[in-house]
Design a protein around this nucleic acid. Structure first.
Lengths: 348, 348
DNA sequence: CCCTCGATAGAAAGCGCTTTCTTTCCTGAG
DNA sequence: CTCAGGAAAGAAAGCGCTTTCTATCGAGGG
């Protein structure tokens, strides 16, 4: 029924071993033989049996990219970049083609663990975890354990946008400087003269949420300004939309709102507009990430640009590099304040 | 080093066969034995070797979801929906956990084929192709061939948002009614009184692009209105941005622009605004897809809503169903015109 | 009280590939 | 002309699991 290595070998009149060697290109094979084999492969339309090959070689060409929300361009951009970086590095064995696949955890710790196990099952060549982690000790420990197991089994582990695992130096980590970015953003608002600033934070117990919030508070504290109302919610537009009502209820005199990210900021703008408040005339709004649509928003969004594409590429490269992770392997990716039309000095 | 089935068997004092049966749950095993085995699995922290299992069983628990652009929420939403539908259907063997992974083709036919081969290698349980296809005969044939091979090898094939393969009835297909949606949209514009309508189309030689364009032309023809300028480009904001200049150069008196999708429409709006033209005061703009951000755009976007989430879920279910595809297996997903603020009657 | 049948568990044969260990064959040095 | 040495190809032993085919053990029925 299906064509196997042996069939190809028979047709090319060589041994299965030779065919394998031609396909993997890691052993000298005479040019004439190679050509004969390749022709047979072509004629029979042979496709390597991945599982068999992975079993025998004790490693597969699968690379898993775990993201919190695949529908969010924040992850889409990074994943896409990582995927192309991985695809390009055709260095490995078996023609080097790695199959980079992205897995959507939906932010659920259970699914994250499930995917990690599944990837472990497949003997994945590498795993990239993208996005903030849940700060629950129990889950943190479970994840750390899994990651250690994976490293031990030879799977490369890369963290992108989440802090390194304390006990484990085997994973390379790429962290965004959320704290400093958030601080700059709030400093910008303070510099404009804002003193009543609301904050729409991301989901509770997430590293990203906490770091951004801490940066915001640092700036406030440094300026001796009291913290305004804060509301938590998911990273989507409706979260920003709903939070705005709450924020305004808690302090009707807010002059600025900082959002967890650009998507949320858009929801905030919409809610403000619905209440007849103009941005930035009545209330200034700022986001985070600088997603592509932020430029086109009306008004265009003041935000902190994160080099998502570069970070993705970097993560992909780290996942591919066979070398050990750089000493202690934590690399910080800076954010850059981008001032646009959605922030201005408060009225009066 | 790594724990194998045999180790578990030894510890539970049963044969490897029994352990396998407990794990797969498809054969009667006495409760006491089962418990003993499960305990051993737990104590040894055993993880099934996927490749070995796939090799022996001649099938894996991998489901591939191919998308044209993972950074585009259009695909993100569908992929996310499909993935959860697949995750929920824990019906299969081996605990039923399927590993749904998304592969980013970037719209490149070569990468599409590469991923298909890679998935074929892995003996994927199912493959879902999302998004329009390239209309190149050669590539079409190559893809069709691959898909046939996959079906023959027992891989379920589902097409979502792309027309069924002519010769092959083994694949289930879900198609969006792009033509009719586009027709309604243009009819809406015509109804408002527009007669000079520009069109920013998607990439050439893509089914989605062609169908939407055809719907647009049908409406125009039915109303006896001459076709306005048309520009092709990718499905991103800059495409809309750049195309607008071209459109306006070809007809400075345009009163409306229809964009390939919402993202492109946003770029069009931005470009118009930069030239001092108001939307919809001077020029009406319409999009397609109704992505989440379209409601919040300023002005909010008139568009054609596609039930992306539902379609994704449907595709996921089809991929999981072990039953043969429904007779002829083509299911049409309708689009719904959503009129919002970006379209209005042309000026005087 | 023997035998048959149903319910469990074990034995063992692969699944298709990689890779070590050999063998073969040819080239060039002595 | 012989022999060492190296390049290229083959033989064969698994990799870890699934799954037929058997074997075993009780429990009823005759």
């Amino acid at each position: 029924m299906t064509v196997t290595l042996a069939d190809v070998a028979a047709r090319a009149r060589v041994s299965p071993a030779t065919v394998s060697r031609v396909l993997n290109g890691n052993y000298p094979v005479a040019a004439s033989t190679r050509e004969r084999v390749l022709r047979a492969v072509d004629e029979l339309d042979y496709v390597l049996n991945g599982p068999a090959s992975a079993l025998a070689a004790a490693t597969s060409d699968l690379v898993g990219v775990l993201v919190n929300d695949i529908a969010d361009p924040f992850f889409g951009i990074m994943a896409s970049a990582a995927q192309s970086a991985i695809g390009e590095s055709a260095t490995g064995r078996g023609g080097g083609e790695k199959l980079a696949v992205v897995c959507n955890t939906g932010g659920s710790p259970e699914r994250e663990l499930t995917y990690l196990t599944l990837l472990q099952r497949q003997r994945a060549a590498a795993v990239i975890l993208m996005g903030g982690a849940l700060e629950d000790p129990e889950h943190l420990a479970a994840t750390a354990g899994k990651l250690t197991k994976l490293s031990e089994a030879g799977t490369r582990v890369v963290l992108c946008g989440r802090p390194p695992v304390p006990g484990d130096a085997s994973a390379a980590a790429l962290v965004f400087d959320n704290r400093s970015g958030a601080r700059q953003l709030t400093e910008h608002l303070l510099g404009l003269g804002h003193r009543r600033i609301g904050y729409v934070a991301g989901p509770t117990d997430r590293t990203t949420t906490r770091h951004r919030l801490e940066g915001h508070r640092e700036a406030l504290a440094a300026a001796g300004v009291a913290e305004g109302p804060t509301v938590h919610g998911p990273y989507d537009r409706s979260s920003g939309h709903e939070a705005t009502a709450e924020l305004l209820a808690r302090d009707p005199h807010l002059t600025a709102v900082v959002a967890a990210n650009d998507t949320v900021a858009l929801g905030v703008c919409a809610a403000l507009r619905e209440r007849g408040l103009s941005v930035p005339g009545d209330v200034s709004v700022a986001g985070f990430d600088d997603l592509p649509f932020s430029t086109d928003a009306v008004p265009s969004l003041t935000t902190v640009r994160l080099p998502l594409h570069e970070a993705g590429v970097r993560a992909g490269r780290l996942a591919m590099s066979t070398t050990e992770p750089p000493a202690d392997g934590v690399e910080t990716v800076p954010g850059e304040l981008v001032v646009r039309g959605s922030t201005a000095a408060p009225r009066g």
